[in-house]
Amino acid sequence: MDEVLLSVRGLVAGYGQTQVLRGLDLDVAPGEIVAVLGSNGVGKTTLNKALSGVVRVGAGEIRFGGERIDALAPPAIVAAGLIHVPEGRRIFPDMSVQENLELGSFRRGKPNRAANLERVYATFPRLRERRGQSAGTLSGGEQQMLAIGRGMMGEPRLLILDEPSLGLSPLLVEEMFALIGRLNADGLAILLVEQNVMQSLAVATRAHVLENGRIVLSGTGAELAQNPDLEKAYLGM
């Protein structure tokens, strides 16, 4: 299985005494979009934070490109090319759009900063228009573009997108999923963590449903979309 980019085995993580993830297995191969679905509070964001080193891993192992990363701090994980675009965007509000993007290459991709900036601006022409504006004054959709653009600046080998469609209007949600498809078509592996089930399944190569810190259903996007258990699992019945 050296074709696997990200491999998670028996992952246990949480906050203090509270266990959120209770033994989770997951693989992402190069070029795939893997969707992780589930309702609020099942551990989706904790999974992302454990992968990016923000939340300490209690047990289990995470391998990225063959190397163990579960004991590494966030800067080392970013340096390896696993880049997490967090829920709620977490942009730097009083810095300009361009400064936000430049900081995306703080740890990785610095030699190609100018070229990558051009690429992000080509993907998001709106960001180019607003390059000098404070990021905090952007609309929600623009802030989400900025967060993804900032992630792309670090030349990700795997991009984790945490709820990229959250808080966007239906039209923008369509655009967001189209964008995710385009990024992936260029060869980028994506771990997509979403509440938006049907649209996620439509773009995903494979998908997993998370419930109570464990994966309860897995399959290709098309299989899961047809699976009558999906609704049950998703509603926690």
């Binding site: 923000v54 800067p75 977490r90 730097f92 509000p93 009083d94 810095m95 995306g104 990785r108």
Partner: peptide, 18 residues
């Protein structure tokens, strides 16, 4: 810039590798 980033958004700063 990293100092200004950490001042306003610690988690976001961690996730770009600061």
């Amino acid at each position: 810039k990293a100092i200004r980033a950490v001042a306003k958004e610690k988690l976001g700063a961690s996730l770009v590798g600061i």
